[in-house]
């Protein structure tokens, strides 16, 4: 019985936590929306390969907002970075993925 509820919870958690959740950002609205959508697309496209997802995000951000973007995609990591203001996005996605995108040249 207990396991069943746990399972249900886990399932619920999966379903409920699938949306992108922004933890920290100082981007302007337009940029934020675009960056967020890009991260979601990349993570969905390369759901098994974080490196490719990060590469895709970085390259697309470079194209759209100018060079020297950096991206981390992973399930667990710590970081301390220096970024240009108005150019950072730290978000969670899919319940188990963390993505950090920032610009620093």
């Amino acid at each position: 019985m207990a396991t069943e509820t746990k399972k249900e919870e886990a399932h619920d958690f999966r379903r409920l936590h699938s949306y992108p959740l922004i933890r920290h950002t100082d981007m302007p609205e337009e940029m934020r929306v675009e960056a967020m959508e890009l991260c979601v697309t990349a993570c969905e496209k390369f759901s098994t390969n974080n490196e490719n997802a990060a590469k895709m995000i970085k390259e697309n951000m470079d194209k759209k907002f100018g060079a020297s973007w950096h991206t981390i995609v992973g399930e667990g990591f710590g970081f301390e970075i220096t970024h240009e203001t108005k150019n950072i996005l730290y978000m969670f996605f899919g319940g188990n993925m963390a993505i950090c995108v920032w610009k620093c040249s």
Binding site: F77, T82, I88, C100
Partner: peptide, 9 residues
């Protein structure tokens, strides 16, 4: 520029 640090797990 600004600094930002966090841990994701």
């Amino acid at each position: 520029r600004a600094n930002f640090s966090s841990t994701a797990n």
